[in-house]
Amino acid sequence: MGPDLDDIAELLEDFKTELRRTNKSKGTIDTYSRDVGYFVAFLASQEPPIAPTAAALTRDNIGTYIEDTLNRTNKRTGKPVTPEYAHRQYRSLQQFCRYLEYKAIIGVNPFDKMNPPTVPEKPIPVPPIESLRKLLSVCEGTDFESRRDTAIIRLMADIGPRINEIAPLDLDALDFHENTALVIGKGRRPRNLPFGDKTRIALRRYLRARAQHPQAANDNPALWLGKRGRMTGSGIQQMLDRRAEQAGIGHIHPHQLRHFFAHNWLANGGQEQDLMMLAGWRSRQMLARYARATAETRAQDAHRKARLGDQL
């Protein structure tokens, strides 16, 4: 007996093939696959279980799934699931259904006139420069990890990449003639990001230490090396957690360094259009979101510089 071509698992394989053909990143494909799988598990948990076929992709079933997701508890943290997580589930299923509608596998898209869960806006705190100086101070030293961690922190604060842009960097991403790092952003869009002199020095010192690392043998192309080879995004996060604890500054998320970069660019008179290019944003919506977190501080600084009251 052949496969059930209407089965969601079979349709998901076709969807993944389409994503690969359109050059979507592995991270995007894995996220969509995992989230559709969660929906299938939800269907199986119902009383009675709902058959995981295209016919189960209804507005009611998806709405109930999103509501159930919002009421769940994260098994790892014991805390309620975040609205951001439920929003991601919604978007993943929406992309899957959009593909099925395009292929005429479903006649009606269940997401038509359906609204995603609201995600409350929570500004990400920008770490003060004093905290980042403390973070760098605990990385002082000539050993491999000190050199590597200093280079990572300086590069992230200097050019503001996403964590999944900096972790996969290879050695040839660095250009010391132009002092730039080539990162691949969302949609596989490349950006050449310029870095400053202190970052250049930190990178050169790290590369000299890296040349002696056991994992550097056999022409390993990975820029950031750990004990078992290329560092992952998770490995960089763990490094930041460890260094932040040593510095006594509390938790530092990689995205806070991206916010630090964006805030300082604007605070020092950088143009918004240039920031959009450097940060890899195609919409001003993201610019507004990042700028809003520290807009009050910049406005206060601008007022102090203008000295409007002193002109009376």
Rank of each mutant, 00 (worst) to 15 (best):
M1A: 15
P3L: 07
D4Q: 07
D4N: 14
A9E: 15
A9R: 15
L19Y: 05
R20Y: 12
R20L: 14
K24C: 10
G27D: 13
T28Y: 13
R34Q: 12
V40F: 00
A44C: 04
E47Y: 03
P48C: 11
P49V: 03
A51I: 02
A54R: 10
T58W: 00
N61K: 08
T64A: 15
I66G: 01
R72P: 01
R72E: 13
T73E: 14
N74I: 12
K75M: 08
R76C: 02
T77C: 11
P80R: 11
P83A: 06
A86H: 05
A86Q: 07
R88K: 15
Q89V: 01
Q95N: 10
Q95L: 05
C97S: 03
R98Q: 08
Y99I: 04
K103M: 11
K103Y: 04
I106W: 04
F111H: 03
D112S: 14
K113W: 09
V119K: 03
E121W: 06
I124C: 12
P128E: 15
P128Y: 08
P128T: 09
I129C: 08
L132D: 00
C139Y: 01
R148T: 08
D149I: 02
A157F: 02
A157T: 10
D158P: 03
I163N: 03
A167R: 06
L174Q: 09
I184Y: 07
G185S: 07
G185M: 07
K186D: 06
R188V: 01
P190G: 00
P190W: 03
K198D: 15
I201N: 06
L203T: 00
R208P: 00
R210H: 06
R210K: 07
Q212A: 09
P214R: 01
Q215L: 11
N220L: 07
P221G: 02
G226N: 10
G226D: 08
G229T: 14
I236V: 12
M239G: 02
R242N: 13
A244V: 02
H251P: 02
P254H: 07
Q256R: 08
A262W: 03
A262G: 05
N264G: 04
A267W: 00
G269Q: 10
G269F: 08
Q273S: 14
D274W: 04
L278Q: 08
L278H: 02
L278W: 03
A279E: 01
A279V: 12
W281N: 00
R282Q: 13
M286L: 13
A291P: 00
A295S: 11
A295V: 05
E296W: 13
E296V: 12
R298C: 01
A299K: 12
H303F: 12
